[in-house]
Computed example of a mutant assay.
Amino acid sequence: MGGKISQFWKTSAQKESEGKLILPGQLDAEDEIANYASINGGDSATPGMLGAGILRRSYVNCPTCQGTGRIPREQEEQLVALIPYGDQRLKPRRTKLYVCLAVTICLLMTSLSIFFLFPRSITVLPAGLNASSIGFDVNTTSIYLNMTNVLNITNSNFYLVTAVQLDIEVLHQSLVVGKTSVKTLLNVSPLQSGQIYYMVASIISDDNTYNICTWTKVRVHNVLLHLQGTLTCTYLCHSEQVAFEDYQYVDCRGNATLPHALYRRPP
């Protein structure tokens, strides 16, 4: 009987000691759960309620703190704030709108820049003879011909074009009888036209041509001349040469070609 009583008292003492060992462990576990919940959920709920809610659910250990829920004080500055995946701050509503608007504006600006800055043709068109003077040399049967011609320049670009130099050659029967080079600074405004006056002195040394121009029995005294030229233009720090040519009939009987009103021949 005494053995049974001692065994009962022993069992009660063991139970008490086991309870003392279990309670601190439970308190520590609840404390760790409360601390872990306070880190992730804030101070809106009490530690007991959070611990009870977490214990009812399945949970996994913190992968960054080795399951203890605590970190050393020296690592306090290394904490990283975690935002839930469903947070609205990660899903801005107008991101696609802003991106599409920025891309549209960039494409529009690029298209406009290409449209206005793309080089277009510079049209150079001879406007014909404006005036001429004739001289004859009986000893050498040569004809001295001075011509003043007009050149039309059309700028089809949306920026200023400057004509800086004009080179002209006059040919008679495939022979160069005169040439000139004119330095000019003609500014042609965007989508506008301009004119250049240039004079060429030619010497024609041909007996047949001399006879045609001096014989009174011949009613028509015309000389066919072939003009070839190159106009150098600059725009947007770029230089371009535009070539042109023209055929002209010049009255070589006398100074019959006087200055006249300018006109533009159709292309």
Rank of each mutant, 00 (worst) to 15 (best):
L82P: 00
M199A: 08
F8C: 06
R93V: 13
L227H: 03
Y197C: 00
T46G: 07
N146R: 11
K217M: 10
L79V: 13
S44F: 07
M49F: 05
Y85K: 04
I203L: 04
V200Q: 02
L55D: 03
R70E: 12
Q165G: 01
Y197T: 10
T184G: 00
P190M: 09
Y144T: 14
N187L: 11
Y59P: 01
M147K: 04
I114A: 00
T162W: 01
S205R: 09
L160N: 07
Q75Y: 05
A81V: 15
T214D: 01
L151H: 04
G53P: 01
A52I: 15
N155D: 08
T209A: 00
T154I: 15
Y36T: 12
T11D: 02
D251N: 13
D206M: 05
S205P: 01
V177Y: 00
N149F: 13
V60Y: 12
R253C: 03
L160T: 14
E240D: 06
S193N: 11
T148V: 07
Q248A: 04
P259E: 07
L151R: 06
P190W: 01
K20D: 04
G25E: 10
V223P: 00
Q248K: 05
Y198V: 06
L160D: 10
S113K: 06
P47R: 13
Q195K: 15
I203M: 02
L236P: 03
E16Q: 09
I71T: 09
M49K: 14
F244G: 04
E16W: 07
N155I: 14
T148E: 05
L171H: 04
V124G: 06
Q66K: 14
P190Q: 09
V60S: 13
T64E: 10
Y249P: 02
K96T: 14
T140Q: 06
T141E: 08
E16Y: 08
N211M: 07
S6H: 08
S174K: 03
G53T: 15
S193K: 15
K91A: 09
N130I: 13
T232S: 10
G67E: 08
I212L: 00
Q241Y: 08
T257S: 02
D207S: 06
N130R: 15
V161Q: 01
G69T: 10
A13G: 05
V170H: 02
E18P: 02
P266S: 08
L166Y: 10
V150M: 09
T184E: 01
N130D: 07
R89A: 05
V60D: 07
K20Q: 10
V170M: 12
T209M: 01
N157M: 06
E169V: 04
V218A: 00
E77Q: 08
A34Y: 05
I5R: 12
D207P: 01
T216S: 02
M109K: 01
P266W: 03
N187K: 12
L82G: 03
G19P: 01
Q165L: 14
G51V: 15
Y98C: 05
I196D: 00
Q78I: 06
T234G: 00
R219N: 11
D167P: 01
D31F: 11
P63I: 10
M109I: 15
V60L: 15
L108G: 09
L55F: 11
R93L: 14
K20N: 11
G69W: 09
I134R: 02
T64H: 06
P119G: 04
T154Y: 07
Q165S: 05
A13E: 09
L171N: 12
Y235H: 13
P92C: 11
L160Q: 07
